[in-house]
Design a protein around this nucleic acid. Structure first.
Length: 275
DNA sequence: ATTCGGACCTGAAAGC
DNA sequence: TGCTTTCAGGTCCGAA
């Protein structure tokens, strides 16, 4: 489900609510969610304070004051929700952290059970997966360098977390529309000017999406249960056969790599190798 | 080396 | 109405 803007939205709402809280107890209702270790390591969180909440790509990091961190990936349907401990626990809630002197608790809920939580030592958290750079913390020269000696199709590369961290299917589609680039363009054919447009589009779309607190298509909610509203700003994602907002041509849908691409074939011309 | 399908899961929506 | 199929904000793995 959540891509960079949604995870960022969750982090922001989560930080305001639980930063500084001391863990009093936990419940692991579906042990499968904890991937690297047994329940035993979680015992070490008891009595520890949350000192920081961070995002890296689509991952959520919760740091405690004893050098331990929870590294969480929401995958498609994962949610972190702050709610009253009096609220009934539904069957998709897999993990709960309760806090000393607080009625509100943190619940991890995930209908499809793809999501994962790792409990690791804080210094090891960022080494855990080799994610590419953050798209909003990169100036153009570095962005341009990433594309050197790459041969993949443009959209595949944007979705590759080891290339750039945080972009998923919604935002890849929206960024490519904004930049007027075809998803199947081989990146070796991109010219300087087009890369610049791509970099600008990436920043524009992601920043705007964060401002709108993410896209709620079906599941996404922030830690307080609020939906985002960037879905109202989508130009092409999910808009098959509707008119292109720029030129009126019908939006096309293409399946490749097991995922849908939505684009305007008039605004986003496919580049081909010419000999 | 890329690309594909399948696997992991569940439920909403569309199709018949 | 009710059963079946398709599809989904992600990622990993193994086979062509």
């Amino acid at each position: 489900m959540p891509e960079l803007p949604e995870v960022e939205t969750i982090i922001r709402s989560l930080s305001l609510k639980i930063k500084g809280f001391e863990v009093s107890s936990f419940k692991l209702l579906f042990p499968g969610v904890l991937r690297n270790s047994s329940q035993k390591i979680l015992e070490r969180l008891r009595g520890r304070k949350i000192i920081n909440l961070r995002r890296r790509g689509k991952m959520i990091l919760i740091d405690f004051d004893n050098d331990l961190s929870l590294l969480c990936h929401l995958k498609m349907t994962g949610q972190f929700l702050i709610c009253s401990s009096r609220e009934p626990i539904d069957k998709h809630t897999h993990f709960i952290l309760s806090f000393k002197g607080q009625l509100e608790e943190l619940r991890f809920r995930d209908v499809r059970k793809f999501g994962s939580i790792f409990c690791l030592r804080t210094p090891e958290v960022l080494k855990f997966s080799k994610l590419g750079p953050e798209p909003l913390e990169m100036r153009f020269p570095r962005f341009r360098r990433l594309f050197q000696s790459r041969r993949a199709r443009l959209k595949n590369l944007l979705l590759n977390q080891n290339f750039i961290a945080g972009i998923g299917n919604i935002y890849a589609n929206e960024i490519l529309f904004e930049a007027k680039l075809h998803p199947l363009t081989p990146v070796s054919l991109l010219e300087e000017e087009e890369l610049l447009e791509l970099w600008k589009a990436m920043r524009l779309v992601l920043r705007k999406a964060i401002k709108h607190r993410g896209s709620s298509i079906r599941d996404f909610k922030d830690a307080e249960g609020r939906e985002g509203n960037f879905q109202d700003c989508h130009q092409v994602y999910g808009k098959e056969s509707l008119p292109c907002p720029r030129c009126g041509e019908r939006i096309e849908r293409l399946c490749h790599g097991g995922r849908s691409s939505f684009f305007c074939s008039r605004c986003q011309k496919e580049k081909r190798k010419t000999f």
